[in-house]
Write a protein that binds this DNA or RNA. Sequence first.
DNA 1: ACTTGCTGACTTATTACTTCA
DNA 2: GATGAAGTAATAAGTCAGCAA
Length: 213
Amino acid sequence: MAILPINSSNLDLSISMPGSSPPRPPFVREFDMNRLPEVGDGEEEWAEEEEESCINDCKPRKKLRLSKDQSRLLEESFRLNHTLNPKQKEALAMELKLKPRQVEVWFQNRRARSKLKQTERECEYLKRWFGSLTEQNRRLRQELEELRAMKVAPTAVVSGHGRQPPLPISAITMCPRCERVSASTITYGKGASSASTMPPEAFLSALKLRQPS
DNA sequence: ACTTGCTGACTTATTACTTCA
DNA sequence: GATGAAGTAATAAGTCAGCAA
């Protein structure tokens, strides 16, 4: 399906859905929708545009600032959908009194920047996860040292409250699946519920689920 | 006056899709 | 009908530059 210009003086663009793109006429040039001709549609305007869009000469370009209402409506639309189809883009542009190209750029930037924020959050979490694992590793190594010491001098070390006999080292095993030390009375990492012990994949997917889609 | 963060706009590369020989 | 090249549009990624705080 192709959305053809309704009125070429103001809306000189043709947007096509994949699958129905009519071949471009040979005279159609790359078209910057931010520099639509004010009047008419002839070659003279094109020449002027090219002069305007010159990157060397050049007049400093004025930067558009969207109004609060425009930003709010764009944000609302983004919350509903992170991408727009051509019809939605056209309608939104009409409502905002912007050019479709400007709406398109806004959505591109918005997608890119929310992805960036998401990546930063994930990065922060992974840093904390790394710190937590490092600490856990340190504790386990220390524990291992103590257990080895027990093997060397079995009567020298008593467990927790001093009422249980020390564990024979043969009773302490490493779980092959989760690589946690376990024994009849010793379990590490079991029942852990804090975010710092949640596997990163699970945390990251949970983080993603909380993102507005 | 200078810095910084935000943001609108641009360019380029990639991908998915259609058309056509 | 299957296939590969060419064309097109949409999007991501990276970047620039204006502007307000």
